[in-house]
Write a protein that binds this DNA or RNA. Structure first.
Lengths: 196, 196
DNA sequence: CAGATACTAGAGACTAGTCTCCAATTAGGT
DNA sequence: ACCTAATTGGAGACTAGTCTCTAGTATCTG
């Protein structure tokens, strides 16, 4: 077996760079040109364009989770959740290509439409993250209802992600950390009073 | 001149419905099928697929602004800003097709890439909204710096939009109003203390 | 060195979609 | 009634892109 010249990861890297520029409209031609490889070499590793893009999305999400879950434990759970929310911004600032690749799809849609070989991975990709958030919810609140779980998810992921999203393609502004911290704490605070 | 059978707005309506299902991948074929018209009739009104989609985006944004700017005046400026933020959610709940159409593009990208005849409109589409937010910033803060203007924009638009975005395709959950109000107030509060 | 296997290479078949073109149609204005 | 101009209708030219196929190449194993 000869040494692979164009690896799985190498192709994904090139795809990520092109996605940075052309967004969802990337073509196999774009990727192969950047890679200096004929299109056949890409199809040797990935059965279809669709699967290539979904794999890139999965890898980006997983890399993000790695950074995200590496937040210090032991301290105040609220602080841990805020630190996680802040990671959304710092990860994006440091890994623009990954961050942009994450905007390629939404999980909820992919669950139905992803190519069969990716389906399992797509379905379970958020599981450990949600488990970790459930732990922190336990630590933060006296009693944990489904509403509390939702609030934690919104405060630690959805809201910061929504805030940085428009800046993924450019640069994260300096007020971002303040805005994330303030909004996350405010949303977590909603769990201390009963639902309206 | 015979009465038009397929009007500008009628074609945009059909396009919006298709966008709801197929997203950015809508084809002229999809639209013409829904409309019961041959593709030629669409090209009679819109020079290209690109311009059709940009016009839909513009119309959706403008309709949103109409609802958004109709928030009551006179009261507490902070309350007015929070009410505006809440409109983001209620507009989305009531006008899903428009809301999804707004996700088709980001203004910052369109400014460069929109077809020439749309460029002016794309560039200025947010102007009156930003003017209104500047007014409210004046009323809310003692001294208004660029940072204050940004915070107001984030609190009243960007953050609520980021929060609702993942739910545009499904339904707005019931905790959304609480989350929007809490986060908006928290972000506005940042303007009362000097920057970190 | 021979054979086996993974990989590269690239031409082009095939497809889906955009857009053009022009003949036919319809509704005023005179 | 006739002329004019906007509009419809739809066939198909054209294009960009995905994907297939096969021949060739490199590396490892015995």
């Amino acid at each position: 077996m000869p040494a692979p010249k164009f690896t799985h990861d190498g192709i994904l890297d090139a795809t990520a760079q092109e996605v940075l520029q052309r967004g969802t409209a990337v073509t196999i031609g774009d990727v192969s040109r950047r890679l200096g490889a004929p299109s056949g070499s890409i199809y040797h590793r990935f059965p279809s364009r669709e699967e290539l893009l979904v794999r890139l999305w999965l890898r980006s999400v997983q890399r993000f989770h790695e950074a995200y879950l590496a937040v210090g434990d032991g301290e105040d759970p609220e602080q841990a959740l805020v630190d996680m929310a802040l990671r959304v911004a710092s990860f994006t600032a440091q890994h623009q290509a990954e961050a942009v690749s994450m905007t390629l799809f939404r999980q909820s849609r992919l669950v139905d439409t992803a190519p069969e070989p990716c389906q399992d991975e797509v379905r379970t990709v958020n599981d450990t993250l949600h488990a970790r958030l459930a732990e922190l919810a336990q630590a933060r609140y006296a009693r944990v209802t489904p509403r509390h779980l939702t609030l934690v998810r919104v405060a630690a992921i959805e809201c910061p992600y929504g805030l940085i999203r428009p800046y993924v393609w450019t640069a994260i502004p300096d007020w971002m950390a303040d805005a994330i911290e303030a909004s996350s704490r405010a949303i977590l605070g909603l769990g201390d009073t009963p639902a309206t």
